[in-house]
Amino acid sequence: MHGDNTTDYLLFLADSSLIMGQRLSEWTGHGPMLEQDIAITNISLDTIGQARYFYQLAAKRQNEKAGGSEVTEDTLAYLRDAHQYRNLLLTELPNGDWGQTILKIYFYANWQKLIYGKLIYTSDKDIAAIADKALKEVQYHVNWSSDWVKRLGDGTAESHERMERALEYLWPYTGEMFMETDYESPQFERDKDFSLDTIRKEWTEEVYHTLQEATLTLPQADTFMHKGGKKGVHTEYLGYILAEMQFLQRAYPGCEW
């Protein structure tokens, strides 16, 4: 769509975090207890905040290239349709029960931690600055969600059973995080140590360790994996999220609080 690799990569990072945050925000007022309700909405706020920085940078780069000023963080978030969104399929999946949401956060936060941990060294100073900021926040998400994965997996018979089900459902959506697209490769080429394959190994090792502690069945690493999100091919769920999230700006263009 935009044909610029860095902008596409920024949109991929932004879209993934925005959709993650938008989904998590559905828990607002519905958490199992007040403290955890607050925790999950804090995580939602963090990821939406990170998405904003990536959108702002993507908008700035697009405007510089086109010599205009019409692209903003808001036009990118509110006025693109599902096929233009690059988010990981994992982020758009329904929340399911508490256990399923927790496991999704754990998988995603762990991936973010590793990606941002590399991006802080990228030669693109603007991206490095956002990654540096986000990395500190994501560490809290990893700690919190891994605690919960262990607590529920190694909990009651029912919580264990639910976590097994969540794992079976979510696992085939984790592979996409490590499938390289054409707009990602140039980001990695610039930084010699950056490879998605290394990230995948580190991620799997860490996740297996937690799942083991949680007494959950370790899934096969080489099983079938869904893909498409990074290229704009989504599940049916994304359209519904966008319909709700974008309604106001579509119905009342330019509306402000």
């Binding site: 403290e35 925790a39 804090n42 706020l45 905040g49 809290y140 919190w144």
Partner: peptide, 12 residues
């Protein structure tokens, strides 16, 4: 009580 508090910067 919780690593996440009343605002993003606080724990409870």
């Amino acid at each position: 009580v919780s690593a996440f508090g009343s605002t993003a910067c606080k724990a409870l």
